[in-house]
Structures are given as structure tokens and as C-alpha cells.
Simulated scan of single mutants.
Amino acid sequence: MTRPVIGVTTSNRSGWRVFPLVAFNIWLAGGRAVRWGAGRDAEIAEVDGVIIGGGDDISPDLYGGKLVASARLDPDRDDLEKCLIDKALSHGTPVLGICRGSQMLNVVLGGTLHQDAYGVYRGSRFIRTILPRKTVLIEPNTRLARLSGTQPMRVNALHTQAVDHLGDDLRVAALDEGGMIQAIERVVDPFAIGVQWHPEHLFYARRQRALFRALVVAASARREHAAQIPAVRQDTRKD
């Protein structure tokens, strides 16, 4: 069987250096990546799964918030990714959201964001690095816990926004030590999970590779018209 095809959204500004890393992780997990971005062709019907990647802040217009002066926006990408997530969920296509992508997943499902997350969560360390220097605490009895275990996880951090109110059918999967939401996951098919960090930079860590593996497994299940969440659960039992 051919590898599941995963559409990956990237920034037109920095995607040239980020996409190869994401594509490498997808290949390790058994899939094949195609790059999407504003102004590029992006058809849900042509892929088996979707990754909404990291990048600029999300416009508060999408969730009824007020713009802060420090925000850096990409409205064309906002429009593209909102449309893609809507179509993915309605077509039963699994989604992995990375940083901005996790936030966009939440917004599309009716949730809101903290634009100045570290101003709200004073106990959260403000770290901007691709190195694993931030600690996140994984919630027990979640899909993320099944994928990566429940031990505290060291991750990287590049974000200033974070999830506030959860969207429909989502639950919290991880928090940082200050209580800021660091991962969310959908509780019904299609499979969807969002993480606030950048696992593509941490490909040497088994717990990070497990996120890409779960997406590819869910994408394979979709190809076969099978339930995705049980397929991911079954795959984790093989480890």
C-alpha cells in the first residue's frame, strides 16, 4: 500500500525551512508530505491527513477578541487554514495542529485564545527556543497520555498565544507548570490533536515522533473507511 499523503500548511515566509523537518517526521512515521500555503493549491480530497503548522498569530476577528499591538498576523493563511480544518473535520480527515495549528483547531471549533498568554499565566516561564527547555504536564486518561506516557515532558516553546476557552468536542491534554494549556485533543472521530510546542524539531525523541505516527495511523484508517481513534489506540498497544 502506498504511504498516506499528509497536507502540511506552512508560512510563505518561513515554510521553506520548516517544511523539510515536518516532511522528515511524516516520512519516519510512514507517510508522505505535500506542502500547502496561502496562494498554493490545497485540496482536502487529495490527502489522507492534515498538519496545520506553526507561524504567525491568529487574528482575533476569528473568535471575537481584540487585537493587541504585538500581534503579527497573516490573514490569507488564517482564511486558508480555517477552511481546511472545516473541510477536514466534515470529510473525516484527521488533523494534527502544531503551535499556531493547535490554536486554529480550537478557534475553528468555537473556542477562543489568550493573545497575551504569558500576561495571563504569570507562573508560566516565557521561553522562546527550539530546544526542549519547557516542562509540560500530561493529563491522565487522554489520548496524548496513551501516545507519550504521563511523565512530565520537556518541550520547546515559540508561542505567545494560547488556548483560552475550549472549542466543541475538545479536551485539555497537557498544561505547563503555570496552568497554561499546552495540548488539546478531540474526543470523537475524526482524530484531531493539537500541541503548543514544535515536535518537528524534536524528531530524536520517541514521545514526539509518536504524534506524527498517530496522525499517519489515523490517515491510514480513513483510507480504509475505519474508525480512527480505535486504530490509533490499537497501534499504541504494539509499542
Rank of each mutant, 00 (worst) to 15 (best):
M1I: 11
M1A: 13
R3F: 04
R3E: 07
V5K: 07
V5E: 03
I6D: 10
G7Y: 05
T10E: 05
N12R: 04
S14F: 04
W16M: 04
R17D: 10
V18P: 04
F19P: 08
P20N: 11
L21D: 06
I26Y: 02
W27L: 14
A29F: 02
G30K: 04
V34E: 00
R35H: 03
W36Y: 04
E43D: 14
I52L: 10
G53M: 07
G54W: 02
D61H: 11
L62R: 11
A69M: 00
R72W: 01
R72F: 00
L73M: 08
D74F: 05
K82S: 13
K82C: 11
I85P: 01
K87E: 14
L89K: 09
S90V: 05
H91V: 00
G92I: 14
V95P: 03
V95Q: 07
L96M: 05
G97R: 09
I98T: 04
R100H: 05
G101K: 06
G101C: 10
S102C: 14
Q115L: 15
D116F: 01
Y118P: 00
V120R: 15
V120P: 12
Y121P: 11
Y121H: 15
R125S: 15
F126S: 13
T129E: 15
T129K: 14
L131D: 14
R133D: 14
L137Q: 08
L137A: 03
I138L: 04
T142C: 09
T142M: 09
R143G: 09
R143P: 00
A145C: 10
G149Q: 08
T150K: 06
T150G: 09
Q151E: 15
P152Y: 06
R154S: 12
R154T: 08
A157T: 08
A157Y: 03
L158Y: 03
L158H: 03
H159S: 03
Q161W: 04
D164C: 13
H165E: 15
D169I: 02
E177S: 12
G178H: 12
G179M: 13
I181K: 14
E185M: 02
R186Q: 09
V188N: 13
P190H: 03
F191D: 11
I193R: 07
P199W: 02
E200W: 01
E200N: 05
L202D: 09
Y204L: 09
A205E: 15
R206G: 08
Q208E: 15
R209P: 09
R209M: 13
A210T: 07
V217C: 14
A219P: 13
R222Y: 10
H225W: 09
A227F: 06
Q228W: 08
P230M: 03
V232C: 12
R233P: 00
Q234K: 15
Q234D: 15
D235W: 07
T236K: 06
T236G: 11
K238M: 12
